[in-house]
């Protein structure tokens, strides 16, 4: 079976274009190993912050029918603990280790600078910084702060889809020095239980992911692809090999899965990749260059 190697940058080629997205199970070295052994070509950590965050009380998530809603409140032990997690991951994964993308979150550019310095010292292959709000000026400041402190490690800025000027945001990220853009973060949402007359999640609101997010992600990825010449890490509602092909055709260079692990468990990686390979073969595509951004090509 062809794995379709995925060249993200000059210095980084993944075995396949299918990776573990941030937020799911990425708070444990042994779960990262499980994702790697299940077929993820790279694993992204859960979002780490400068200091420990306890996170939200239960309920923190549910399946509302067309997707998931989640708000764990950025539970994480703080960036200093990421060091132990990543070294344990490398040790436990052994020969089966795949590259690690370190996802980080801060509220301000200053905080991002310090967080990036600490993260870069752990030497992940990519630093993925979550943009706190989809604002061009903030994107510019945060991207510069992260890139200037990343010690040469490639940086991807992860954006939310609730932004009305995607192309301007993309240009600010490119001009700030980022090597890639990750799109998209889940979109804000709310679930209400009418009988309880209350929001279901303890924090009131949360983020919508899963199948409901896919068309929104495809739209944003398409806009990014047309606006800037940066590799796009596509994330949002990918459940099947065809979903993956669609996201690559919208312009993503590789594709992350998260919610699929709820719907199916870790076997989702191999099933999605098998379906994707079958699609590529049946349609006569030989490599990823023949489909990335294909819907925008003028033939």
């Amino acid at each position: 079976m062809n794995n379709y190697p995925c060249k993200l940058f000059d210095q980084l080629t993944l075995n396949t274009p299918l990776i573990l997205a941030s937020g799911v199970s990425g708070n444990s070295d042994s779960l990262l190993v499980r994702a790697a052994r299940s077929g993820a070509a790279a694993v992204t950590t859960k979002g780490f912050t400068l200091k420990y965050r306890k996170g939200a009380d239960n309920p923190v998530s549910t399946d509302w029918g067309c997707g998931l809603i989640t708000n764990l409140g950025l539970t994480n032990p703080g960036v200093d603990s990421m060091k132990y997690m990543l070294s344990a991951y490398v040790e436990k994964a052994g020969d089966e280790a795949v590259p690690v993308f370190a996802n980080i979150y801060a509220d301000t550019a200053e905080e991002f600078a310090e967080l990036t310095r600490k993260t870069a010292a752990l030497n992940p292959v990519l630093i993925e910084a979550d943009l706190p709000a989809p604002d061009e000026n903030l994107a510019s400041e945060v991207t510069r702060a992260v890139c200037e402190n990343a010690a040469g490690i490639p940086v991807s800025i992860k954006i939310s889809p609730d932004c009305c000027r995607i192309s301007r945001l993309a240009e600010a990220i490119r001009d700030g020095g980022a090597s890639a853009i990750t799109a998209v973060n889940p979109i804000p949402g709310m679930l209400i239980d009418a009988y309880a007359a209350k929001p279901f999640l303890s924090n009131g609101t949360g983020w919508i992911s899963g199948p409901a997010l896919k068309p929104i992600a495809l739209n944003v990825i398409g806009e990014l692809y047309q606006a800037v010449d940066l590799p796009i890490i596509g994330v949002g509602g990918v459940m099947s090999g065809l979903d993956m092909a669609e996201m690559l055709m919208a312009g993503a260079r590789c594709v992350g899965v998260g919610s699929a692990l709820y719907y199916e468990g870790y076997s989702a990686f191999s099933r999605i990749m098998n379906e994707f390979s079958a699609f590529m073969e049946s349609e006569g595509y030989r490599d990823l260059d023949e489909i990335v951004g294909k819907i925008w090509w003028k033939s």
Partner: peptide, 11 residues
Amino acid sequence: RCGMGLCGNCR
């Protein structure tokens, strides 16, 4: 926590 196999808390 999540009860859905996502957060990894119960591993």
